[in-house]
Amino acid sequence: MAHANVIELHRFGHLYRNGRGVREVDLEVRKGEIFGFLGPNGAGKTTLIRTMMGFLRPTTGSGKILGLDVVKDNLDIRKRVGYLPGEPVMYDWLTGRGNISLAMEVRGLKNGGRLRELAERLEADLDRKVKSLSKGNRQKIALLNAMVHDPELLILDEPTSGLDPLAQETVRAILVEEKARGKTVFMSSHDLYEVEAVADRVGIIRDGVLVAVDEISNLKKQRVKYVSIELRTPIEEIQLPPGSRVLRKDRAKLHLSYTGEVAVLLDWLSTCKPVDLTVADPPLEEVFRSFYDQEVRS
């Protein structure tokens, strides 16, 4: 039975004994989309992923992946999911190929699956022992391991971590192709550019709470505007509107982010009598910061 939502979490969370963790996440990830899961280190990205994968048991709520219960049907979920841990570790004494072969044997796969094709694209060194590989090359092997059985859903925790820019670009291209093949990708990252480049929707987690889920285009449009304004009057004399934050000042030009009603911004602009003006959707970074940096706003 086909499910429109590949991931469905309802008040889903895992709290550690110290009270930290992930609290009551409600989230749906649609079939065939790339979902970016953003948050700084320690926000709870990895905890949520590990709970979805069954490494941790949910302390609240319930979750379904590919229509299967996260706790009860975890074995079946793992058959159909490709998982890349945040810090992938494999058996050091085996080669990359040895590690992948072991995983494929456990998965009951006889042939090499997509190993050759993906390894060539990623330029992964399969025949050296893992202990002698660099972090980037280990990451490539771990990525291959997650993708080689052609899973319906990829759950990737920081997929481009440790990779050089070219390899990062290749990974992003592969993920977009996977999406085109009807696969779903759930990827965590703290790299805003990366998520902006590939994801359809994004979820932002802060202190274990999912604070926003939206399409990237909506999220950027939703509240924050990037305003560059050139003024005749000295910048110091300008009274900024509420919800604005100065990003940069150079000579008579002021660059600020604005969060709030557009009408209020227009009113303020009319009083400033600007010489030149640019209002644009902000880079995702600015949207991201608006969720984390509220107290800095003027």
Partner: peptide
């Protein structure tokens, strides 16, 4: 401790 448990537990095995 070494992290290889993640490798095994991500596979479809009990």
């Amino acid at each position: 401790d070494s992290g290889t448990a993640d490798f095994l537990l991500a596979l479809p095995t009990r």
